[in-house]
Design a protein around this nucleic acid. Structure first.
Length: 449
DNA sequence: CTAGCCTTGAAG
DNA sequence: CTTCAAGGCTAG
């Protein structure tokens, strides 16, 4: 029985990596692991491992150690209960609805991912209309190399051990399957939510009772900086600056500090630390303003109140004050930002979703001259998958939520491009001073064209 | 024992 | 009726 194509395109058995033949005992597995699991459970087989119970199980070596094979079956989530005690044939069991749901989830995920290209094209189109891209900007002689080393490169480690590539914590068993001949590393879980296959028995990739959060989202949350810690850090740094700063330059200092924390966050983040430093720099140079804007927006949506702008420092500034003191361009930007905040508020976007969006922004495969675009692409796809899955679990009654979030992201991108242009113009007028990272970032993109 | 193919039968 | 995940069979 060929498994219906389309539902799962190139799904591999989570136990041995062989071709999947359908759902067996709780998840998609290959025919041989299905049979192996059945024999083991039906006949109450007991195996022993002659090694250290950590044998690698793949298609060619799966026969070698039945102990570790069975262990892996259980670890990836195969269900003992699905093997029938009475050996009754045919029919359906209680897992039926679960399979159906998982299949629907996968299908939606695939179709969204397939639409990704189109969506990105249209969003970059949107962004480019707001930028005078063709003629290179004013010839300002500002060489990064003649200055002190750019702060981003000092913030990023100068070298990474090569062995670090594609590796995560040694404790977790991330299976990375390369697709075709390119080095597109792709972590793919078999059942819903199984992004992480670990030997930890608590990380059951599939749960029948109650909704659960995708593992990737949980990992993102775990590494997301704590708002109050960030607050303290930036507040102390701001106090050190003090002096004759007007509101705008104070905001710039704040942006600069926030940028530092964004770089720190990225450095410590899963996936990002696997990249070469050159790629890390390219990604950050490309998306810094988007991340900065998302930081501001998410703060308003999660903690802010209407009519005022909540700063990292927990200070509140009346919007009306900002608008009447701002020049017309800035006022427009603030108003547009306000609209975007409202859109996120209507959606009631939560921390989980913002943290996924952060990763979607960071891992942008459209960035030019990436060494390892395949990896960036695969991360982007995984994050999209996790976000989609999260939205389907958290608000199953609203299927369009994921698409709406992506729409907001695309608007955020065009707004950040406008904001970046605005900052760049003010920088050219020497109105932004003493903000190393901010200035480096402002120059990075312009020196590329 | 393994793993590919076959048969079964409740659910949709 | 069809679907498809259970169990069954058997050559290698």
């Amino acid at each position: 029985m060929a498994y219906r194509q389309g539902a799962c395109l190139e799904e591999l058995c989570p136990v041995c990596g062989d071709k999947v033949s359908g759902y067996h005992y709780g998840l998609l597995t290959c025919e041989s692991c299905k049979g192996f699991f059945k024999r083991t459970v039906q006949n109450s087989k007991k195996y022993t491992c002659v090694e250290n119970q950590q044998c690698r199980i793949d298609k060619t070596q799966r026969k070698r150690c039945p102990f570790c094979r069975f262990q892996k079956c259980l670890n990836v989530g195969m269900r003992l209960e699905a093997v029938r005690a009475d050996r009754m044939r045919g029919g359906r069991n209680k897992f039926g609805p679960m399979y159906k749901r998982d299949r629907a989830l996968k299908q939606q995920r695939n179709s969204f991912i397939q639409n990704r290209r189109f969506r990105l094209d249209s969003s970059s189109l949107l962004a480019s209309t707001s930028q005078q891209s063709d003629p290179p900007p004013v010839a300002i002689c500002y060489s990064l190399t003649t200055n002190q080393p750019p702060s981003l490169s000092t913030l990023l480690p100068s070298a990474l051990p090569a062995a670090n590539q594609y590796q995560c914590t040694p404790s977790s068993d991330w299976t990375i399957k390369s697709e075709n001949s390119n080095n597109c590393a792709c972590l793919s879980g078999s059942a819903a939510g199984s992004y992480i296959h670990s030997d930890d028995p608590h990380s059951t990739p599939f749960s029948t009772q109650g909704p659960r959060m995708p593992q990737l989202v949980m990992e993102f949350l775990r590494c997301d900086p704590d708002e109050s810690q960030l607050q303290d850090k930036i507040t102390t740094r701001l106090q050190q600056v003090h002096g004759d700063h007007d509101t705008f330059s104070l905001m710039c200092v704040m942006a600069d500090e926030t940028l530092c924390s964004i770089v720190e966050w990225a450095r410590a983040s899963i996936f990002f630390k696997q990249l070469e430093v050159s790629d890390q720099m390219k990604l950050l140079h490309h998306c810094w303003s988007e991340l900065l804007l998302l930081d501001i927006i998410s703060r308003q949506v999660l903690y802010g109140k209407e009519g005022s702008l909540l700063l990292v420092t927990r200070q509140e500034v009346e919007l009306s004050d900002i608008i009447c003191h701002a020049d017309p361009s800035l006022a427009t930007l603030v108003l547009q930002g306000q609209e975007l905040i409202q859109r996120f508020q209507i959606l009631k976007a939560d921390r989980q979703e913002f943290v996924c969006i952060k990763f979607l922004i960071l891992f942008n495969p459209d960035v030019k001259e990436l060494e390892d675009r395949g990896f960036v692409e695969s991360v982007q796809e995984q994050v999209e998958g996790a976000l989609l899955e999260y939205t389907l679990i958290s608000s199953p009654q609203y299927l369009g939520r994921f698409a709406h979030l992506l729409l907001c992201l695309s608007e955020l991108r065009s707004l950040s491009a406008l904001a970046e242009d605005y900052l760049y113009r003010r920088h050219l007028n020497s109105q932004i001073t003493c903000n190393n990272l901010l200035i480096e970032m402002l120059h990075a993109k312009h020196s590329w064209r």
